[in-house]
Structure formats: structure tokens, C-alpha cells
């Protein structure tokens, strides 16, 4: 067992978990934050993307113990109270989601993409989202959403 302490969405958490607990299981099962999803077992689909110290990470590729001491942000933690994050608003406004399953990971990846890269072209957005698979939207409206959010976020 490992004692894992970290900050998740601004709150300090501390749990004893088996050594092999993945960060995604820690988030979903221990913390019951089920907005982070699991869509594959090979770190391809990106449904589990969260931010670890501001960097987007596939939470299925990291042990909870490796994230000890980190600041974690999940999809549940990006809105400011009732005020949605510009990326969330843009996905809603541009119909950037259908079934919603890939959406949390897609939003988390897109936020980091926009925050770290100014003046993104459409092609750069498409390449930047390579690590997230969506089966519903054909990506067209996801790209539009990210473009709209980038405007809003000063990207």
C-alpha cells in the first residue's frame, strides 16, 4: 500500500491505496470523480486526460503514487463555480460533443493545447488533438470549438 497525498481540484486528499493503483482509478474510484473516463487500455483514446501540475496527462499511464504531491485538475475542476471554462462554453456553443464520453478528455487536452500555443492554425489544432479519439463528431465541431475557445482565451 502507498499513502498518496495530492491536491485535486483545489482540495487536499490523502488515501492509502495499493501500489499499483493507476491515477485514473484513484480519481474515478477512490475520489468518485467519474467525469474522467476510460475508453481503452493502451493509452490511445485520451478519454482519461487530466492536468497534472498544469500538463495534460493520460491518467491511465500514471500511477497514483507517481502523482503524489501534484496538483491535479479534472473536468470537474475547471469551471469557476457556475461559470463554465471558455473551453466548456465553446464545446456547448459549437456542438463539439455528442455522446459526451470523450468530451472530458478532449476538453482537458484542448485547454492545455490552447494555453501553451498561441495563434494555432486549424491544422495545428487537428494535430494537437491526435491523442484523443472521438467516434461521434468527426472532429469538425471539436476543431471549431477549440478555435472559438482560443479566441476567448486570448490564444
Amino acid at each position: 500500500m502507498a499513502l498518496v497525498k495530492m491536491t485535486v481540484n483545489g482540495q487536499a486528499v490523502e488515501y492509502d491505496v495499493p501500489d499499483n493503483t493507476l491515477l485514473v482509478s484513484f480519481i474515478r474510484e477512490t475520489l468518485e470523480l467519474t467525469g474522467t473516463h476510460v475508453g481503452c487500455d493502451t493509452s490511445q483514446c485520451g478519454a482519461c486526460v487530466v492536468h497534472v501540475d498544469g500538463q495534460s496527462v493520460k491518467a491511465c499511464t500514471m500511477l497514483a503514487a507517481q502523482a503524489a504531491g501534484s496538483e491535479i485538475t479534472t473536468i470537474e475542476g475547471i469551471a469557476n463555480g457556475d461559470e463554465l471554462h471558455p473551453m466548456q462554453k465553446a464545446f456547448h456553443e459549437n456542438h463539439g460533443l455528442q455522446c459526451g464520453y470523450c468530451t472530458p478528455g478532449m476538453v482537458m487536452s484542448a485547454i492545455e493545447l490552447v494555453e501553451k500555443n498561441k495563434g494555432l492554425t486549424e491544422q495545428q489544432i487537428r494535430e494537437g488533438l491526435e491523442g484523443n479519439i472521438c467516434r461521434c463528431t468527426g472532429y469538425h465541431n471539436i476543431v471549431k470549438s477549440v478555435q472559438a475557445a482560443a479566441q476567448e482565451m486570448g490564444g
Partner: peptide, 19 residues
């Protein structure tokens, strides 16, 4: 019309079977 169902999904509040 923008979708009524979006809010739960974009805030991580969707409830899928594994949840």
C-alpha cells in the same frame, strides 16, 4: 438550439453505466 444535455457532459457529470 444548443443542446439541453450538454451541461452534464461538459462538466463531467454524465452518468454512464461504469459510473
Amino acid at each position: 438550439v444548443r443542446r439541453k444535455e450538454d451541461k452534464k457532459f461538459i462538466t463531467g457529470k454524465g452518468r454512464y453505466t461504469d459510473d
